[in-house]
Computed example of a mutant assay.
Amino acid sequence: MSVLVGIIADTHGIIRQKALEALKESDIIIHAGDIGKIDVINALETIAPVYAIKGNNDKGKWSNRYPETEGVEINGTRIYVLHDIKEMDLDPKREGFDIVIHGHSHMFSKRIYNDTLYINPGGSGRKRFNLPLTVALLHLFDGGEKEVQFIHL
């Protein structure tokens, strides 16, 4: 059995229909900050349970319910979520995290560093810096295998 994790970030208050379609099969959704409006989370929750953290642009009462970082365990895989990777305040490997999910740069990427998988789903809200709008899907398979797919919106 596998678990499909939808990953989204930097929506800045915009939830595109294409993003919802791309994430529609997700078992769980992670939002890596700069949500913009609670409406974004409400729309994502119609698909699956959502883990969300606040980004540097998330202000106001509605955003107080979201932490700045969060540790999540899904199907035996430990995931650390923060908005800006430059603000990483721990050693993921030492703390037992298998994956780090982050946003902020609006650039989709995946890389492995020190046996930890780092994923940035890219931005899916306002188009910025001539970068494509993207979300990511993370397939967590039994036995620990992981597969990341980026979807251009």
Rank of each mutant, 00 (worst) to 15 (best):
K93G: 04
Y51Q: 07
E95L: 12
L44Y: 07
L131T: 06
N114K: 14
N130H: 10
I53E: 02
D89G: 15
R128N: 09
G123Q: 06
I41T: 06
K93R: 15
S109D: 07
G36L: 05
D89N: 15
L153T: 11
H139E: 15
G55I: 05
F108D: 06
T46M: 12
P67Y: 06
M1E: 10
K18N: 15
A32G: 12
P67T: 10
G143I: 04
D10N: 13
K110W: 03
R94L: 15
N120I: 01
T116Q: 01
K24L: 10
D98K: 13
Y113H: 10
I112L: 02
I99S: 01
N120Y: 04
M88N: 08
V72G: 06
F108T: 00
K86C: 08
H31C: 12
L117A: 01
I85G: 01
I119S: 00
N56K: 05
I29C: 08
G71P: 05
I38E: 14
N120S: 04
V100E: 05
S105C: 03
R78L: 01
H104V: 01
P132K: 08
H31I: 09
P67W: 02
P67A: 13
I119Q: 01
I14K: 14
Y118T: 02
K24P: 05
D39C: 03
H83L: 07
G144R: 08
V40L: 04
I7E: 01
Y113C: 01
N64W: 10
L138W: 07
A48C: 08
G144I: 06
V135P: 04
F141T: 03
I14Q: 12
E68C: 05
D34I: 00
L137S: 08
N56S: 08
D91P: 09
L133E: 06
L82M: 13
G55Y: 05
V135K: 01
G6M: 02
K110P: 00
I74R: 04
A52M: 07
D91V: 13
P121K: 04
G6S: 02
M88V: 14
V81F: 07
D115C: 00
R128A: 09
P67K: 14
G143F: 03
I7F: 06
